[in-house]
Design a protein around this nucleic acid. Structure first.
Length: 143
DNA sequence: ATTCTCACA
DNA sequence: TGTGAGGA
């Protein structure tokens, strides 16, 4: 029984994850003071604050950005350098994510491994490219 | 209990 | 960037 990948992506939305500054701080090891400062500098952004919500809130995208900045910061980069690395990393991640979103149409399982449908392969759009994965080993098949 | 802004012995 | 004040 193949799982329709698109349904999973609509049901499982990362945007449903929203954190406040204290939570994001614990999740990333970055102090609330730093988070506010980074936002002031335009490095990260919090969700729009409506009249009733005076406190900042962050989505998953913000979490990823902070996590990446923190990574390079710990690696010895300056804040500006870490932010630069974060921006390019986000570009790569976005490109890969988009590719996967549009290429993976379904996933099935056969004898312990996954069979991932990578969509139409030929110009006539009659055949699909399948990736058979077991662990880190990947074999391709046109069917 | 948390978060916010502002100022800085 | 940290910290404390004074509010909400």
């Amino acid at each position: 029984m193949a799982i329709p990948f698109e349904e999973l992506t609509t049901v499982f939305s990362f945007d449903d994850f929203v954190f406040r500054i204290g939570e994001l701080s614990k999740m990333t090891g970055v102090s609330p003071r730093q988070l506010r400062y980074w936002e002031q500098r335009g490095y990260i952004k919090s969700l729009d604050r409506t009249d009733d919500k005076r406190a900042r809130s962050y989505n998953y995208a913000a979490y990823v950005s902070v996590k990446i900045i923190k990574h390079y910061l710990d690696d010895g980069y300056t804040l500006e350098g870490a932010v630069s690395q974060m921006r390019s990393a986000i570009k790569y991640l976005t490109a890969v994510r988009q590719f996967i979103r549009h290429s993976v149409t379904s996933v099935d399982f056969e004898d312990g491994g996954a069979v991932i449908d990578l969509g139409v392969f030929d110009g006539d759009q009659q055949k699909h490219l399948y990736a058979h994965t077991r662990g880190t080993d990947i074999n391709y098949e046109i069917r």
